[in-house]
Amino acid sequence: MDKLEIKNLNRNFKFGKQKVLKNINVSFLSNKIYGLFGENGAGKSTLMSIIADYNFPTSGEVLLDGENVHDNDNALSKIYYMNQNNMYPKNEKVAKTFKFVQSMYEGYDVNLQNKLVKEFQLNTKSRFNKLSTGYKSIMKIIIALCVPCEFIMLDEPTLGLDARNRDIFYRELIESYTDHPRTFVISTHIIEEIDKLVSDVVMINNGKIILNDSADNIRSKAYSINGPADLVDEYVHGLDIIGKESLGQYETGHIMGRLPEKEIPSGVEVNKMELQKLIVNLMDRSEGD
């Protein structure tokens, strides 16, 4: 695929005029790892389910390489959505579901599947509804990594996973991404786990996109300035301040943009702002909207 574009996407709530998604415009390019961030209820899952044609938008369209995705078998075969709903029969054994998905996708990587089953120690003879939350996620992860699709969306992939399995997941994701470059969109609350892994960041808040940029760009213009309150205030004056914290006489100002030309007064420290902090600050800021 070349790119997946979302144009003027709106989606209303079931009853009522409130909108879950408001005029979303975003493009996802090939072979990148996107981090999709936002609070609970911000609209991330809705967006992903519309892209996969699980649900319909109220207006707007989703285009994969120029073709509308809706009811398009060709486009849909290139998209896979790993989601929190249970799409496969609950009473069926894992092995049987795996076999089913295999038959649905030509080019499904059976070797990788077997390798992952061993790594995660997933009991494929178990029935899906008897698995723990973590292992349900693991089954879904395995399928998502083995399907031969060019656009994979992962909705909270590490839900319920213990530290060991989370580590395995990220390693296998990287390896699979390196072996078969394709686009991943990962939606998660645990931002710090993937903040170095993502090449691009898309943030949704209250149904709107409030940030859409490459991770490198964001990192190069997100700073935390701390020191004595008056010096910090003077230094950050006129800059795009997205958050402030005070502790007695000391203050930390979070800014986005280029650092000013002036010299940093002594006693004042300038640090890179982590993505995690940046996102929290941006979410707080757009609370008022």
């Binding site: 790892i33 990220y170 990287i174 390896e175 390196t178 786990e193 993937i194 170095k196 892994l197 090449s199």
Partner: peptide
């Protein structure tokens, strides 16, 4: 390798 380093520190391989 690139892959090994990115896996160990969970950094994007392209980086």
């Amino acid at each position: 390798s690139t892959t090994e380093i990115s896996k160990t520190f969970q950094i994007n391989p392209a980086t």
